[in-house]
C-alpha cells in the first residue's frame, strides 16, 4: 500500500512539466500547427522562470515569467510558421536550436552560473506529507486543472469549435468569415504559454534550480504524450501521468537494487514511453489519428 502511495506522490511531483507541455502540444496541433518547438519553449520557460524567481525572490513571479517567455517563444514560432510561411517542422527545429545556444549563453551572462547550475531558486508552495516528502501542490493542481479547462474550452465553447475546425477543415472556418491565420496564431501562442509554464515548473517545483541540460528531452516526451494521448487534453494528461509512472517505477526498481534491477535495464524503462508511442502510432496499441489538417500550412489560394 505504501509503495502505491509513494508512486502516486512521485507522479504528482514529476508529471506536471511534461503534462503542461503536452497540453501545449495539443492546443497547437488541434489548431493544425505542429509544435516541434516544445523542447525549446520549455527551455525558455525554465530559464526565464528561474531567472525571474531569483531576481524577485518570488516563485510566483518566476512562474509568470516562465509563462510569458513561453508565450513569446510560441508567438515567434507562430510568426515563423504562419506569417513567414516557414515549414512548421523547420520552424520548430529552429526554435529548439535557438533555445539551446541562447539559454546556455544567458545562463552564464545573466546569472554567472558556474558549471551550468544556478543557485537554489525560491520554490512554489508545497505540502509536507511526513515520511513521503513534500508535494508541490501548485504544480499538481495546475496539471489536473488546466487540461480539464482546456478540454471544456475545446468541447463546449464556440471558440473551441472554431479551434478544432481550424485543425480539421480550415477552409470551412475561412468560409465562415473567421481568420484562419489569426486563430492559429492565438492557438500557437497559447500553446507556448502552457509549455512555458511546464518548463518553469522544472526549476520552481521539481528540481529547485536551473541546470543547463534542462529540459533534457522532456519536450520530446511531451510530444510523444500528445500522440499517445490521441491529441486530446485529457488524453495527453493521462499519457504524461503514465510516462511519469513508468519513470517513478524505474527509479524505485533501480534504487531497491534487487534482482529485478539487474534483469530490466534502466535504459529500457527510459525508452518505454517512446516505444509505446511508436507502437500506438503504428496501430499495434490502439490507433492514433491526428487532426486532419495537422501540419498543413494555410494557403487561402490553394484548392
Amino acid at each position: 500500500m505504501s509503495e502505491l502511495t509513494t508512486l502516486v506522490v512521485s507522479i504528482l511531483a514529476f508529471a506536471p512539466p511534461v503534462a503542461l507541455a503536452a497540453l501545449g502540444g495539443v492546443l497547437s496541433e488541434r489548431a493544425g500547427v505542429v509544435n516541434l518547438g516544445l523542447e525549446g519553449i520549455m527551455r525558455f520557460g525554465a530559464f526565464f522562470g528561474a531567472w525571474a524567481a531569483l531576481a524577485s525572490q518570488s516563485a510566483w513571479v518566476g512562474l509568470s515569467a516562465g509563462a510569458l517567455a513561453g508565450g513569446a517563444a510560441g508567438a515567434l514560432l507562430a510568426a515563423l510558421a504562419i506569417f513567414a510561411e516557414a515549414d512548421q517542422i523547420v520552424a520548430g527545429v529552429a526554435l529548439n536550436l535557438l533555445a539551446l545556444g541562447l539559454v546556455t549563453f544567458l545562463l552564464e551572462w545573466a546569472l554567472g552560473a558556474a558549471g551550468g547550475i544556478t543557485d537554489p531558486v525560491p520554490a512554489l508552495p508545497s505540502l509536507s506529507l511526513g515520511g513521503l516528502g513534500r508535494l508541490p501542490w501548485v504544480a499538481a493542481a495546475a496539471m489536473l486543472l488546466l487540461p480539464a479547462l482546456a478540454s471544456l474550452l475545446l468541447a463546449k465553447t464556440p471558440l473551441g469549435l472554431r479551434w478544432r475546425a481550424v485543425g480539421e477543415n480550415p477552409r470551412a472556418v475561412a468560409a465562415a468569415g473567421v481568420s484562419v491565420r489569426g486563430l492559429r496564431f492565438f492557438a500557437v501562442t497559447a500553446s507556448g504559454v502552457a509549455a512555458g509554464l511546464g518548463g518553469a515548473l522544472l526549476p520552481l517545483a521539481v528540481l529547485g534550480r536551473f541546470e543547463d541540460r534542462m529540459p533534457a528531452g522532456q519536450g520530446f516526451i511531451a510530444l510523444a504524450a500528445v500522440v499517445f494521448g490521441k491529441w486530446s487534453p485529457l488524453g495527453a494528461l493521462g499519457a504524461a501521468v503514465f510516462f511519469a509512472g513508468a519513470e517513478a517505477l524505474q527509479i524505485e526498481i533501480s534504487s531497491s537494487g534487487g534482482a529485478l534491477a539487474a534483469l530490466v535495464p534502466r535504459g529500457l524503462f527510459l525508452a518505454l514511453p517512446y516505444l509505446l508511442t511508436l507502437l500506438a502510432l503504428a496501430g499495434f496499441v490502439g490507433r492514433a489519428v491526428p487532426p486532419a489538417a495537422d501540419g498543413v500550412p494555410w494557403d487561402p489560394e490553394a484548392r
Binding site: 515567434l76 510568426a79 515563423l80 506569417f83 513567414a84 510561411e85 516557414a86 515549414d87 523547420v90 520552424a91 527545429v93 529552429a94 526554435l95 536550436l97 535557438l98 533555445a99 539551446l100 545556444g101 541562447l102 546556455t104 549563453f105 552564464e108 551572462w109
Partner: peptide, 22 residues
Amino acid sequence: LHRSWPEIAQGVAVVLVAGQRL
C-alpha cells in the same frame, strides 16, 4: 566571451532560413 556564440549564430541563421519570407 562565452563559447556558445557559434551555436547562437547557427540558431539565428536557421530561424532566418526558416522565415524565408521575412
